[in-house]
Design a protein around this nucleic acid. Structure first.
Lengths: 299, 299
DNA sequence: ACCAACCATAGATTTTATCTATAACCAAAC
DNA sequence: GTTTGGTTATAGATAAAATCTATGGTTGGT
């Protein structure tokens, strides 16, 4: 098995036709035929069924293609990172939960780099994808939190995937409420205080507040539950219905406008926010600088 | 870049020495030197620093090796699955949460296969690893549950990773208590009933009961909390201290002995247990038969 | 029956990988 | 300071492979 063979069968599968695939690959048709045949012989499988109308993937071939794509996905990472190095295109990839400081640090890093050719990715996503991205080197660094409920599971997962976790700071759960809510007068709130009011949450799992509430507080009983899809709608309801939503205290308050305020929530819980790195590779200069910026922003 | 080159640099890095690595790879030393040099030139990087005492990985090379290993890990899956097919070695891999029916089905599948040469893996692990295993084709099928709290997050994660979820059945949370516990008389229990008794849980995140309680009920207040490392200790305490532990109702009761009984727990929650498959490949015959057995065991 | 659109095969050619032999290097021992 | 032993690098020959051109074979449509 060679990478070429894998690329070939993917192209042939896409084209559904060896002749056209050969043109696309800039090789002669018999070469392609031979390459595929060789791969099939090596593993004693039939990837394509041939006919005078072209080729078709066999079930076996479909399965094999799944594996082939996995390999090629990984090789693409190498090509992306190392090919065209002389083009001077700077690359940097982060996966993070929704934290404004992570985005700020990202922007700052981009500014500092002073590059005119670059490819930066800021992937705001969920815990699983963060761990997966970093474990498979799609991102160089990940940012997530631990608390007493997820800590064991997350730590074990990190260990299984050969990732390190370095704490940045501890955050406390906050409640977002409307400026005129009766709760606005209090300095800090308890779950008991919140009980009479409607609780708002996002329908979409991609938002951190949902994930956060899911893992920490969603099981606490609540009589009035409102689930919305849109962030703006949520804020409207916060104000109009004296509702509340639970979030980490590090979500960007500027985005919320002057009518929304955050209050500390008194619960026996914490969030330890930190970054994860793959232990198998040494962090790049970009990554180290990003960590520096993170530290300066969160201390 | 070729797979050979990647294999070569990994071996050289392991040996710390081109000469010995060449012997191990059954090629001549100059061939190996040339192969490495070519790879380094292709990407304009320096993977090894050479000296008369052998070679050493540069920081750059260390990073590159991380990527190389990722690619090779994927190719190994192909080799494992397809190489030596004529040896008739049957292979099957499942990742699952800790469900006795999943293990039973696994054993049944093994029996039915009637193979004398095989390699079967039953990977009892956590949600993340199940999804990761199936997404990256290390397992052909995964078994996990959804409930109203994790459903959105899990479904989005599955979608992101191009996995399908098929429900098998709904399970209800159960409480395990000692035979002589005062709670044993009741037909079903509420969280209120449990309040006076000590709650037991595992220290280790790998056990499903922990993960389950973590996601569904661990945030409910509890005055008496006992955390143990050992399953036998937990059962001792269940009996000796009239404690309880919360679990899915599908954990194997036979394992627990006659002194432990399960009671349904009345909570507004459910567990939808099902299996996940990669959408990119067609399930193998083994996988389809495994699903059949699962269905017959859980209906 | 014939054409058109495929894939398969054969044999030549080019390219790549590998081999053997040997040079160059460098540190440690003498 | 020179020899020695272990190392990587280079040169040129050789073997292996990938690819090419030309052509044959199959099959559905006309």
């Amino acid at each position: 098995m060679t990478l070429k063979q894998l690329q070939y069968i993917v192209t042939v599968a896409e084209e559904g036709n060896i002749t056209n695939a050969a043109k696309k690959l800039f090789i002669a048709q018999p070469s392609l035929t031979a390459a595929i045949r060789e791969l099939e012989n090596e593993y004693n499988i039939t990837i394509f069924s041939r006919s005078n109308k072209g080729i078709k993937l066999t079930p076996e071939g479909e399965e094999f293609l799944g594996y082939a794509r996995q390999v090629l996905d990984q090789t693409e990472l190498i090509e992306e990172r190392y090919a065209g190095k002389e083009s001077g295109k700077l690359k940097f990839f982060v996966s993070s939960q929704h934290y404004s400081f992570a985005v700020e640090a990202f922007v700052e890093l981009l500014k500092r780099s002073g590059a005119d050719k670059y490819e930066f990715h800021m992937r705001e996503t969920q815990t699983f994808n963060i761990i997966d991205d970093v474990a498979h080197l799609r991102s160089e660094i990940g940012i997530l939190y631990l608390n007493k409920f997820n800590e064991e599971v997350i730590r074990k997962t990190l260990k299984d995937n050969n990732l390190s976790f370095t704490p940045l700071f501890k955050a406390e759960p906050h409640v977002f409420i409307g400026k005129n809510s009766p709760l606005a007068k209090k300095k800090s709130l308890t779950l008991e205080d919140l009980k009479p009011y409607p609780r708002l949450s996002y329908e979409q799992g991609s938002h951190n507040s949902f994930y956060f509430s899911e893992e920490i507080l969603s099981t606490v009983d609540c009589d009035k539950e409102l689930v919305v899809l849109d962030r703006a709608t949520l804020f409207n309801m916060l104000i109009g219905l004296n509702g509340y939503t639970i979030c980490s205290g590090v979500i960007n308050e500027e985005l919320n406008g002057p009518n929304i305020i955050a209050k500390k929530l008194k619960v026996d819980d914490y969030m330890e926010i930190g970054y994860i790195l793959p232990m198998s590779i040494r962090p790049s200069h970009m990554t180290l600088e990003y960590i520096d910026i993170l530290k300066s922003l969160t201390k």
